[in-house]
């Protein structure tokens, strides 16, 4: 990705309108023109604020006159490296060739959050990564990822593994790199604005698809099967052929490197830990 020569200001000043948010190996220079959104965003994403040279710039300008729109599916249209994105709470353009994006947003942190999620998912797909609805726990420096639908047990399993470090409990990034596949925590946690004090990351050890059960057991899945079952848990725009292709390619590469399992789990934390130890 092209390096930008943007200058960012110290992040500990709440009135700062431009600062750097670091997620999944991307340093995003974020500029927002609304003091209230800036204040809230600083508070919610403070642990992901970085003193780093940005490699992508996002400009957000609060819009007026479109308040109160109903939620609707996001639409993206891509031409070359440019994405035109239209959602109920933000719209604008993302250009990977110039490593920049410009959006008009609703005047609230939810719109800011949506922009970050969508931007991250597009950047990840270009770099062999995905944003997954999953929790993840690092045990002895190795990341275990637990994908599930809402109410499927992501937070429960993360909470049961109190011998590890929780990387994320709602959306985590998985990305291939020169040192293998890495799982990254994101600011997107269950229940809204509550994020980890310390963003965590670790090499991926295994990916699990969760099913609630009385007993705990894990069954290995072939990469193709694992990829197919993981797709509904990936954050991407299924209407867009280009992002779909990039995302599925990235996911297929990941599942061919990191073993995948169907995990039936009960509420016995010791049984869960033993199960993970056996495949460790």
């Amino acid at each position: 990705m092209a390096q930008q020569t943007l200058q960012h200001r110290p992040h500990n000043k709440e009135e700062t309108k431009q600062w750097v948010i670091s997620m999944a190996g991307f340093n995003l220079a974020v500029t927002v023109d609304d003091p209230a959104v800036v204040l809230e965003a600083h508070r919610i994403y403070s642990s992901f604020t970085a003193e780093a040279e940005p490699d992508f710039a996002i400009e957000m300008n609060v819009r007026t006159g479109r308040d109160g729109q109903k939620a609707r599916p996001m639409k993206t249209v891509s031409t070359g490296g440019v994405w035109q994105i239209d959602s109920y709470n933000f719209s604008g353009e993302l250009d990977t060739s110039s490593a920049s994006a410009r959006f008009s947003i609703e005047p609230n942190w939810g719109a800011f959050d949506s922009v970050l999620r969508v931007t991250l998912s597009i950047l990840l797909a270009q770099e062999g990564g995905v944003l997954v609805h999953a929790s993840s726990v690092s045990r002895e420096g190795k990341a275990f990822v637990f994908a599930a639908r809402p109410e499927g047990g992501k937070s429960t399993v993360a909470g049961m593994l109190n011998d590890g470090v929780v990387i994320g409990d709602e959306l985590v990034a998985i990305r291939r790199g020169p040192n293998g596949v890495i799982v990254y925590g994101t600011p997107f946690w269950n229940g809204g604005p509550t994020v980890s004090d310390t963003p965590a990351q670790a090499p991926a050890q295994a990916i699990f698809l969760l099913t609630k059960a009385d007993q705990t057991s894990a069954r290995r899945l072939e990469p193709a099967q694992m990829t197919a079952k993981l797709i509904p848990h990936i954050f991407f725009d299924p209407d867009n052929l280009k992002t779909s292709r990039a995302t599925i390619d990235a996911l297929a590469d990941i599942t061919q490197t990191v073993p995948g399992y169907q995990l039936r789990f009960g509420l016995d934390a010791d049984a869960l830990r033993r199960c993970l130890d056996e495949i460790d």
């Binding site: 797709i231 991407f236 299924p238 779909s244």
Partner: peptide, 17 residues
């Protein structure tokens, strides 16, 4: 969108993933 993984083709009909 499709991709061969090992011996298996994975096919995704987009717009309804």
């Amino acid at each position: 969108v499709w991709r061969v993984i090992g011996d298996n083709a994975l096919i995704v009909k987009i717009k309804t993933a």
